[in-house]
């Protein structure tokens, strides 16, 4: 398969993730949709690595995964803290972050 097909899949998934970030109201699902966007970027990186025949792109993809894991850990910590503080878990209602 040519690289262009992978890039097309990546672009579609990225846009779907962006639509999810814009429309979802549960912060947990906003994080899930961010995950979609990060993975679309990863797919493009790996496709370009294959196009160049060089393994270095895979290192980029692994670093993106690390960043995504860190984002998930902190983001879910914020969601749990919101739930503990009896704040409605809804991005429309969230206006302040102070504990």
């Amino acid at each position: 398969m040519s690289t262009g097909w992978y890039l097309a899949v990546s672009a579609i998934v990225f846009a779907i993730g962006a639509a999810g970030v814009a429309t979802r109201r549960n912060p947990l699902l906003v994080l899930v949709c961010l995950e979609l966007m990060l993975n679309a970027g990863n797919l493009a990186i790996v496709a370009f690595a294959r196009m160049h025949g060089s393994t270095e792109g895979h290192v980029f993809a692994l670093v993106v995964m690390v960043v995504a894991a860190a984002e998930v850990a902190v983001g879910l910590g914020v969601v749990v803290a919101l739930y503990r503080n009896r704040v409605p878990v809804d991005v429309d209602e969230l206006r302040e972050l102070h504990g």
């Binding site: 690390v66 894991a69 860190a70 850990a73 902190v74 910590g77 914020v78 749990v80 803290a81 503990r84």
Partner: peptide, 14 residues
């Protein structure tokens, strides 16, 4: 280092 900071941050937040 980023993973370490994120792990500590998650524990502190939650």
């Amino acid at each position: 280092f980023l993973l370490l900071v994120a792990a500590i941050g998650a524990v502190v937040l939650a």
